[in-house]
Amino acid sequence: MSQDSQWPVWEVFLQGNPGIPHKHVGSVHATDAEMAIQNARDVYTRRSEGMSIWVVPANSISASSPEDQGAFFEPSNDKPYRHPTFYKIPEGVKYL
């Protein structure tokens, strides 16, 4: 996302309720972080959708590339022993 002539873009993350992660909801334009938070409040929380807001300059976010998706996440599939279902436990054994 580019910085256009209407001020830089900030990505907005909201925490909906205590104890749950912040979630991306969209973006706003603002000159600085304070204005970005105020704009995010007005645009994304008019009906108590959030109790905490994070704003991040869009150009500070690095992301994995969709083209490499397969190769990049592939190694996880080679390691099924990371999942509890990999292990055979006899019936009758409790609390495992």
Binding site: D4, S5, G26, H29
Partner: peptide, 11 residues
């Protein structure tokens, strides 16, 4: 905000 994700300038 959603259109800007397609690389267009809001201005």
């Amino acid at each position: 905000s959603a259109v800007e994700t397609l690389g267009v300038d809001r201005t």
